[in-house]
Amino acid sequence: MSAVKRHLAFASVERLSVQSLLLAFQRLFKSLLLPALGIVAFLILWSFTASSINTSLGEFPGPQAVLEQVQNLYQEHRIEREKEAAFYQRQEERNAKRLAEDPTYTAKVRAYTGKETFWDQIVTSLLTVMSGFLLAVAIAIPLGIAIGLSKKLNTAINPVIQVFKPVSPLAWLPLVTIVVSAVYVTPDPMFAKSFINSLVTVTLCCIWPMVINTSVGVASLNKDWVNVSKVLRLPALRHIKKIVLPASIPAIFTGMRMSLGIAWMVLIAAEMLAQNPGLGKFVWDEFQNGSSQSLSRIMTAVLVIGLIGFFLDRSMLQLQRLLSWDKSMELR
């Protein structure tokens, strides 16, 4: 009997091992293989479609042309950084020579003013979008909490939100440009006006989803939690910190994710028109250039814009998981 029991136990363990392997394979298939198959199918479709489209600037760029442009853009960036290093080295040597000849000489250090590369423009766009987004967060979340806690304030401000929420960034940009030119007047500006124009436009366009989602999340708090807060007589700020914010995090982050996606889309259009030296300006300059490589360079920028948007969204999801009290929540 003991041998039969051992055999049955071994068979049961073996079945569990097989089931575990099958479940692990299913998870791997869903998380890695299916996305990989989708990407491969897209690349094949893109290659065949691109080869059949002819434009005034030549054949529409396929994956191979984009890959070549990635290498070219990186090479241009490396060459520009070498020029920058050589410029500062020559300046340092020249100042050292002048100081040796004249100890009273005041050395002057001039900034390198070479051409911004594609990778520099990526950094500029990221700095601009995050600056505008964080400014919108600082305004929208406190405002959304206040609206959610006060029905009277909600009734008063909601019409204003509904009017300005659908306004296009292209409509805001001329007004922002005029106001910034009138207000931001200084002989030695810390930031370029084009940067301020893009930042303010991004803030104006991504503030509304955060306000709406935050106010909805706060207004739909569990009544029992609110009653507990009243019984404990928590001060207003402590009530917000201990009850309102933890319960509203999912709604707040939903609004933040939507706003960050809108901010990234708005920024590219704003950079095209405001000529802020970011990815939008790169696309516009290549379109105006009209060279044989312009299409592939624009397509490269389009893919980079999409990838950055994807990683920004994933980063926001991870931040939500880190700050949320419910670690088992399903994030998509």
Rank of each mutant, 00 (worst) to 15 (best):
L126W: 09
A65M: 05
P63Q: 09
T106E: 08
A111C: 05
Q64L: 15
D120S: 08
V123C: 02
E101R: 10
E68Q: 14
F118I: 12
G114M: 05
E76Q: 14
V129R: 08
I53L: 12
G62T: 09
F133W: 03
D102V: 03
T49N: 10
E84C: 04
H77Y: 12
Q69G: 05
A65E: 15
Y105D: 04
F48K: 05
T106F: 01
Q91G: 07
S131Q: 06
E59F: 02
R81T: 05
A86E: 13
L127S: 10
D102M: 04
A50L: 09
A100K: 15
D102C: 03
A86Q: 15
K83D: 10
T49K: 12
R94S: 13
Q69L: 08
L127P: 00
Y74T: 11
T128E: 10
A100S: 14
E68V: 11
Q121F: 03
L134A: 06
Q91W: 03
T55Y: 00
I122Y: 04
S125H: 10
Q121E: 14
L57D: 00
E84T: 01
E116V: 00
Q89E: 14
V129T: 07
T49W: 06
Y112S: 10
L127H: 10
P61Q: 03
N72H: 12
E59D: 09
R98P: 00
T117Q: 04
Y105P: 02
L127C: 02
T55I: 11
I122G: 02
P61Y: 00
A100C: 08
A96L: 14
Q64P: 04
F87E: 11
K108N: 01
R94V: 02
L127F: 02
K97V: 02
K108S: 02
A96V: 07
R81M: 13
A85K: 11
E80L: 07
P63T: 01
P103T: 03
R78C: 07
T55M: 07
L134N: 05
S51W: 11
V109D: 10
S51D: 13
R98Y: 03
T124D: 02
T124Q: 11
L134I: 08
S56L: 15
N54H: 13
Y105T: 02
T104A: 14
L127Q: 09
